[in-house]
């Protein structure tokens, strides 16, 4: 019983944030409702796609609305792991799931005819296209990582509750935009970004992340004194903390690009096979709403 209470305690938010909780619950709820509706019509996506989407949403919730968030605030390497989930892994899984048809099916009917929908589209459309430009997207992706890791900026972000939330939201939203562009299920013919361009973009973001991670890993001085100033979650040598954080910025973050490239290469090869055999790949070119 005591063990159960302890586990429940770990799952409770360190700092409850309605925005994170609502976003995760609405995304999961909408997806599950859409899945049920699509199943009843025999249009459900592959099981692995549903699993990827829900795992991504659970990942976002776990690093923001459980006691893990405490560790993220008071240790550099656990903070880097939090951003690895928010900026890389969770958005990657969500984009890989190609969830738009299911989410659209799960939306309440009223939301389709909401007033101002067309206006919002006209205002946000150009901004979205700008952020998804193949030159802007990688700059933004790498730029945000660097920006929040400028020691003085990082100091303020960890000290201020509001800035901390802005930092985490910016990482998640940018991660979703970037990996959505890279793993867009539409073929280039259907309006998706060219496969070659996707590979180039994912290659381009590897080197800056490797350099930054290596810099943290091999630095002989503590770069982020906010964790000394505010205290660490448990006693750990500051340089060890920084080196672990550097490795997380360096290796798994870069590996996500490699996995992304392999997925795009698979699409290219599948496209060639289709052309040779005259068959269509059912997993590609999913209709988007």
């Amino acid at each position: 019983m005591w063990e159960l209470e302890r586990v429940v305690g770990y799952l409770l938010p360190w700092e409850f944030s309605p925005a994170w909780a609502i976003a995760c619950l609405v995304a999961a709820g909408c997806y599950l409702r859409g899945l049920k509706r699509q199943r009843s019509k025999g249009q459900a996506p592959d099981l692995w796609r549903s699993f990827a989407f829900l795992l991504g949403v659970i990942g976002v919730y776990a690093v923001t609305q459980t006691q893990y968030d405490y560790l993220s605030q008071f240790m550099f390497f656990t903070h880097r792991a939090q951003h690895l989930v928010l900026h890389h892994m969770a958005p990657f899984l969500i984009a890989l799931a190609a969830p738009l048809p299911v989410l659209a099916a799960g939306l309440p009917v009223r939301s389709v005819s909401l007033p101002g929908r067309a206006m919002a589209g006209r205002v946000l459309g150009p901004l979205y296209r700008l952020l998804q430009h193949p030159l802007i997207a990688p700059l933004l992706f790498v730029g945000l990582i660097y920006f929040w890791l400028i020691p003085e900026i990082h100091f303020d972000a960890m000290l201020s509750r509001q800035l901390y939330q802005i930092m985490n939201w910016s990482m998640l939203l940018d991660g979703l935009l970037f990996w959505w562009l890279m793993l867009d299920p539409r073929t280039p013919e259907q309006g998706g970004l060219g496969y070659g361009t996707r590979i180039l973009v994912m290659l381009a973001v590897i080197t800056p992340q490797v350099l930054l991670g290596a810099y943290f890993t091999f630095s002989e001085r503590v770069l982020f004194d906010v964790y000394d100033v505010c205290g660490r979650a448990w006693p750990i040598a500051p340089l060890t903390d920084q080196r672990l954080g550097g490795l997380l910025t360096w290796i798994p973050a870069s590996m996500m690009s490699v996995i992304g490239i392999l997925i795009v290469v698979r699409h290219i090869l599948a496209g060639k096979d289709d052309a040779n055999t005259g068959k269509a790949d059912p997993e590609r070119g999913m209709t988007q709403p």
Binding site: Q73, R161, V229, C230, G231, R232, A233, W234, P235
Partner: peptide, 18 residues
């Protein structure tokens, strides 16, 4: 936005506090 933690007690019941 600061934290503290208590270390394990040694044989003399002394413990460190971060």
């Amino acid at each position: 936005r600061v934290t503290y933690s208590h270390g394990e007690k040694d044989e003399t019941d002394h413990y460190d506090v971060s």
